[in-house]
Amino acid sequence: MTLSKMLLSAAGLALSAGLAQAESHMSETADKRIALSNNYAGNSWRQAMLQTWQEIGAQAVADGIVAAADAYTTSENQPTEQAAQIQNLILQGYDAIVLNAASPTALNGAVKEACDAGVIVVSFDGIVTEPCAWRIAVDFAAMGREEVDYLASRLPDGGNLLEIRGLAGVFVDDEISKGIHEGVEVHDQFKIVGSVHGDWAQDVSQKAVAGILPSLPDVVGVVTQGGDGYGAAQAFKAAGRDTPLIVLGNRQDELQWWADQRDATGYETLSLSIAPGVASLALWVAQQILAGEEVPKDLTVPFLKITQDNLDDALATTSEGSVANVTYSLEDAQQVISDAK
């Protein structure tokens, strides 16, 4: 054995010793199986979420961190269907279920059954209220407030706002809207003169905005919930109105539109959203719980913020027609957990 080879192997030994330290919480979960129970797959955000799960899950299995990370999606977005799915996952002997729930309350019975069977349940995005489950939530109300704060910083004189809401009756829609209205109370130079439901879909928003615009006075800003900014911009354009300050979400077409406007007219705005990669965070949190880590039941993820400065970076990493995304690593999960402690 030559000297260089000896040195290399010595270095390798030292390295693996160090890694063993770091991986102390990994080997324990090597035989654990994690399932994703997902209630809906029919939009680009959910598709990006499932793809992130697939990539991170496959990597985790290949690295021997977990034995399985399978994704299951219900076809009809119904709580009853998802409850049955959770019961199946319990019977299939998964050690943890990562859950994007169709309803915050309707799945509680099934979630309780899972907990009683010794299965770890981690809910994210669409969270459940059952106390035995973990929740990785976004502070949606803060997101709404931040939109109005941003508008106040850009338009100190205030003016009329148009609010585009999401899907009526959904928890997330109520929370973001609540935050927006709280923000408007603080910054009382703004007034919400119209409110429509865009269902987080571009074509629905375009239709709703086109319908209400003729009856609205001048609008200086549009507060949105994501996925609807491009449609609003199209409706303003079709009505021959000046483009107001539209707070955007994270769809690629919104960001591309923003970049085009910036290059043409120096348009400036802000994008706030929830990265679909939050699924990978939930996967790591479940792994940490399985590894015996003390994890608080309520965790908060920061929302994804794109500003004028990092717009080009965000566009460069977002494939055409997809959504801007962040993939979370094990270290990010540990950071989120220690922040919550």
Partner: peptide, 16 residues
């Protein structure tokens, strides 16, 4: 026509 009108096809475009 709807996809051409609204700038692309979306998975939930037909829902309503």
């Amino acid at each position: 026509l709807l996809a051409s009108f609204s700038g692309g096809a979306a998975l939930n475009m037909g829902q309503e």
